[in-house]
Amino acid sequence: MADKPLLNIAAGAGISRPPTATEFVADRSFRFMTQVCAAAIVALVGYILWEIGGEALPAIREYHAGFLVSSVWNVSTAQFGILPEIWGTLYSSLLALLIGGFFGLTVAIFLTQDFLPPRLAIVFRTIIEMLAAIPSVVFGLWGIFVVIPAIRPMADWLHGVLGFIPFFGTSLSGPGMLPAAIVLAIMILPTVAAISQDALHLVPYRTKEAAYGMGATRWEVILQVMVPTAAGGIFSGMVLGFGRALGETMALAMLIGNSNQISLSLFSPANTLASLLASHFPEAAPVEVRALMYAALVLLAITLVVNVIGIAILSVTQRKFAGKS
């Protein structure tokens, strides 16, 4: 009885059959279509580079590399330079990386090294992931009405007492580098925390057990075994977080003060490439648009380099641990 289907199949009466001609054509065209879509993504990136580069070309011909080291932005005389914006972009992102990197790595350690029972760890991880879901403008609004008032007393005190140190050299008039960097740090924290957690998870379990077995304390295991072993992945998380900070726009446009100046002071207003684009582009005259396209190309180049480095480190370290856990 039970053998009947098998016998049928043996007799060639199974449900399998070779594909018909229509199916064959459908198969080939569908496969071709997926290939076109994959190629379209490659083409899109090429088109983005070509389009922004092409629009920036007139400005590159006109201002050459002097554009990168000049601090003037004057529409009426058509003189443009983005040195303050390059400085502001790097300075704000670096500050954000210092704060967000520290918090992100600590959170990653906290979530992976048995500080919390598994259920609570999932809840806490979700809370940190939710930070990434809050839109940039909402962080900007929150920064204006919560962060700036909250840090003002401390900023005034630091400026009054330690004003001779360049970092506290000016008073906080409202928007400025520090509130922008704090909000930026909060925005990159989930990126750093997520990639660092993955890196710590990749460390083989027996490595950790061996360290505990030798009598190391919890933090000796974390700081001398886990973090060094996962260092590559953690570093790539920091680089990708830095890349995200470089390109972040709205929160910075709302918090950094859009002021064309270079200052070490944490409390002085500044500007970044992305917020320059956000604040000037909508009302720009054609001559200014060309300069803004040049600025966009510079931002594109910086973020591309940083991201490619981050992704490269990440894939190298992931390959290192492949199949070892």
Partner: peptide
Amino acid sequence: GFPSILAGVF
């Protein structure tokens, strides 16, 4: 990791 503002520029 592409900055969203550059999608606007593009």
